[in-house]
Design a protein around this nucleic acid. Structure first.
Length: 599
RNA sequence: GGGGUGGUAGUUAAGUUGGUUAUAACGCUGGCCUGUCAAGCCAGAGGCCGCGGGUUCAAGUCCCGUCCACCCCGCCA
């Protein structure tokens, strides 16, 4: 009696066999990727995550069992035993195993497959909704597998790199204390302490600082983080950070180590040699030239500030009003594209900037004689137009796009986003281009008009730059106090951010004071950190990388869901498992949570 | 919380100014076929047109509401 193939170990994967294996008797197991029935013979491509191998079921070899083979369909799980034979004239150059095929002598269906909800195929055109509902099928597709393999390799490289540089991987709790500063927490009710809640971590921030106090001078963790906020193409309610912290660093130590890690990742994963050191830019410069704290440095087309040239008034109400209201007038120069941009296209750009709060968008087309064709041209004196042209480097056929608003932030945000959109439209951005920049010298605080107080731009444990500390004593305006915080920006996306932290209790207290976090409140929320800082805390700092975003960029995908095995929708539900779901009244009672009233 | 786009066989889409039996491709079922690799040829089955109201002699199509997904703004220290 022969042993069932199901009980036998496969001899090879479906991506392994080559011409040199000809003559071997092999056993492969995998999924039917496609089948082509020719009556007398049947071709099947068998797939696993390593590749595809063609198996041929031949009438002469199999006799009447060919009838059984003809019922094989896509995504059946199959074991095939047979001899590796050359394909002779019929080599398939599209797959690595294309020189050979398996001439099947015996096969078993290990598992059949129902009619599929969508075709499990790289170029499936099924909607994402359907693919997420059957994610286990979607994950079979080689393109998706490729992304997860990339993610795995990235994690391994990061782990090894950090370990080699004396970082210890230490796990911090998932059930932590809610600290409602910043993003909304996911809460977990406590059964034992009825009415009390844990929070899932938004980041391991406090714990990693405490590890520094404890003397674990280099820590890292590939840490799952949770934020209960609305989602986007690059935001999930749970996401992963490569989180690290070190004691006694200088800023340079951190930049050097992190650049080394990026160099390694790009070399190993993309075969690209990155140049170091990465350029650096202050937050102020980023805002001035790019309009954003995450500048896309793959192309120029900078924002040009025209406010000083227009400060005496020009008669154009939009510009004058913006400046009188304490705002800005800035512009970008789209070189040589005035003729390409129709009125309709410019209207679309206007609609676009309006989504960022701009009231409109003035534009001008530079004529051959250097003067402007613009609705507001009549307001500009010859000298003023000349001065503006010179500042903007304007030449014939340039398209000038203006942002003007009493709120500087609206001008920067709208023009900054417009700059990127236009660059995409006119092809300034090359594929496979990777442009890193450190953005430094972030402000400590920004004013929150709703709460009528300063809030921390980074987080409340960020160290002010040492030369700024005196501003606490001077009293008054803290809006220009700079922090020892830095972001790593890649192609206009923040991929990492961090800071040197406060390691002295009295500075931490001053920051809390500036944030109008009272002593009692500070004690209740962060007492353990304040205490720890009083027991010999080393100077420390670190940063966290967004693993999902990094993987997205490396994989060249446009959605974070493409690099997460089981992602959630933009309404934070899992279409496959149907989480979140209602729970029994009994469960709620145990958790001391009031039952939902029937209505 | 606000705005935009989409939802029609298993899947992806078409469906005109409202009008007779709602099309096509792929998939599925059956038949033919020994060199396919997007296999080919023939035949067939398959529909709560997201859901609920309304207008109308008549609704996939028009109106109102609602659900789901995606994208954007707010939000995300």
């Amino acid at each position: 009696m022969t042993t069932s193939l199901e009980l036998m170990e496969r001899t090879h994967t479906c991506g392994e066999l080559r011409g040199t294996d000809e003559g071997k008797t092999v056993l492969l197991k995998g999924w039917v990727d496609s089948w082509r029935d020719h009556g007398g013979c049947l071709f099947i491509d068998l797939r696993d995550r390593y590749g595809l191998t063609q198996a041929i079921f031949n009438y002469a070899e199999l006799g009447q069992t060919l009838d059984a083979a003809s019922s094989l369909r896509n995504e059946f799980v199959l074991a095939v035993e047979g001899k590796v034979v050359s394909r002779g004239e019929n080599i398939n150059k599209n797959i690595p195993t294309g020189e050979i095929e398996i001439s099947v002598s015996r096969f078993e269906v290990l598992s059949p497959c129902k009619v599929l909800p969508f075709e499990v195929d790289d170029d499936t055109n099924a909607h994402e909704e359907l693919r997420l509902k059957h994610r286990y099928l979607d994950l079979r597709r080689p393109v998706v597998q490729k992304n997860l393999i990339l993610r795995h390799r990235l994690m391994q490289l990061a782990r090894n790199y950090l370990s080699e540089h004396d970082f210890m991987e230490i796990e911090t709790p998932m059930l932590t204390k809610s600290t409602p500063e910043g993003a909304r927490d996911y809460l977990v009710p406590s059964r034992v302490h009825g009415g009390s809640f844990y929070a899932l971590p938004q980041s391991p921030q406090l714990f990693k600082q405490l590890l520094m106090v404890s003397g674990y001078d280099r820590y890292f963790q590939i840490a799952r983080c949770f934020r209960d906020e609305d989602l986007r193409y690059d935001r999930q309610p749970e996401f992963t950070q490569i989180d690290l912290e070190m004691s006694f660093p200088t800023e340079e130590t951190i930049y050097g180590l992190m650049e080394g890690m990026m160099v390694l990742l790009w070399k190993e994963l993309l075969g690209i040699e990155l140049q170091t050191p990465f350029p650096r830019m202050t937050y102020a410069e980023a805002l001035d030239k790019y309009g954003r704290d995450a500048p896309d440095t793959r192309f120029e087309m900078f924002l040009t500030d025209l406010t000083d040239l227009l400060k005496d008034g020009c008669g154009f109400g939009v510009f004058d009003g913006a400046i009188e209201g304490g705002g800005l007038v800035k512009a970008i120069n789209v070189k040589g594209k005035a003729k390409e941009y129709s009125r309709k296209m410019i209207d679309q750009l206007t609609d676009y900037v309006k989504t960022f709060g701009a009231k409109g968008m003035a534009f001008a087309k530079v004529k051959d004689d250097g003067t402007w064709q613009a609705g507001f041209a009549k307001f500009l004196s010859e000298d003023l137009m000349k001065a503006l042209s010179e500042r903007l480097g304007a030449e014939a056929d340039d398209l000038l796009l203006f942002g003007a608003d009493p709120k500087a932030s609206i001008v920067n945000e709208s023009l900054g986003r417009l700059r990127i959109r236009v660059a995409e439209e006119i092809g300034l951005i090359q594929p496979k281009q990777y442009s890193f920049t450190w953005v430094t010298h972030f402000p400590m605080f920004e004013y929150d008009e709703e709460e009528e107080r300063y809030v921390a731009l980074h987080h409340p444990f960020t160290m002010p730059r040492p030369e700024e500390l005196h501003k606490f004593e001077d009293g008054g305006d803290l809006s220009d106090m700079l922090a020892n915080a830095y972001d790593l920006v890649l192609n206009g996306q923040e991929v990492g951010g961090g800071s040197l932290r406060i390691h002295r209790e009295e500075i931490q207290k001053k920051v809390f004071h500036a944030l109008k976090i009272g002593e009692d409140e500070a004690r209740a929320k962060f007492g353990f950190l304040l205490d720890a800082l009083g027991y010999g805390a080393p100077p420390h700092g670190g940063l966290a990388f967004g693993l999902d975003r990094l993987t997205m960029i490396l994989a060249g995908t446009s959605s974070i869901r493409d690099v997460i095995a089981f992602p959630k929708t933009t309404r934070a539900s899992c279409l496959m498992s149907e989480a979140p779901s209602e729970v029994d009244d009994k469960q709620l009672q145990e958790l001391s949570i009031a039952l939902r009233k029937e209505t």
